[in-house]
């Protein structure tokens, strides 16, 4: 079947199988920042935005995406320069496999804070990001960078 999606700002038409997951289709279509890591919707490495809200692309059937807007790390990286600098200057990127998914999540979090939906404090930020697992950094370097980027005191 064919679906039309607005991916990182431009409309594309994809030929998919009804049983395809969004993650696999995204990778097939060249959006390789989206990572496959856990197969159970547990790790956050495949996080994308669907209509502006974070979603696990491994747990969404691509067929349900017809007419929707999808944003991957490739689509927001240029807007997230300050975030990338903050993370890099902490040395917290490490292996990088969880980084694009986390960046998408931080992008969404910043919007939620701006809209007053999430409190701008350490606990709320940690809770919002709890689904993004990292095995290298122990999270603390990431958090130093994220708090700095979001202006969490």
């Amino acid at each position: 079947m064919k679906i039309k999606v607005k991916i990182n700002g431009k409309w594309e038409e994809w030929e998919i199988d009804p049983s395809d997951y969004l993650l696999d289709v995204l990778r097939r279509e060249g959006y390789l920042s989206v990572k496959k890591a856990c197969d159970t919707g547990t790790c956050g490495a495949c996080t994308v935005l669907v209509d502006g809200f974070p979603a696990l692309s491994c747990s969404i059937l691509a067929a349900t995406m017809d007419g929707h807007e999808i944003t991957t790390a490739e689509g927001i990286a240029d807007e997230m320069d300050d975030y990338m600098k903050a993370l890099a200057s902490e040395g917290a990127d490490q292996c990088g496999f969880c980084s694009p998914g986390l960046m998408v999540m931080v992008y969404a979090l910043r919007k939620e804070i701006e809209n007053g939906k999430v409190k701008k404090d350490e606990e709320a930020v940690k809770r919002y990001l709890i689904g993004n697992l990292c095995r290298c950094s122990g999270y603390l370097g990431q958090q130093r960078a994220i708090f700095k980027f979001l202006g969490v005191k």
């Binding site: 990778r27 390789l32 920042s33 989206v34 990572k35 496959k36 991957t72 790390a73 490739e74 990286a77 997230m80 975030y83 990338m84 993370l87 890099a88 200057s89 040395g91 990127d93 490490q94 292996c95 990088g96 496999f97 980084s99 694009p100 960046m103």
Partner: peptide, 21 residues
């Protein structure tokens, strides 16, 4: 000296650099 990792920006923005990519 705490210089950023040389591959930091490429990795964070999700460049296709891993085996499966």
């Amino acid at each position: 000296k705490s210089v950023p990792k040389k591959d930091a920006y490429g990795l964070i923005r999700g460049k296709p650099v891993y085996t499966d990519d």
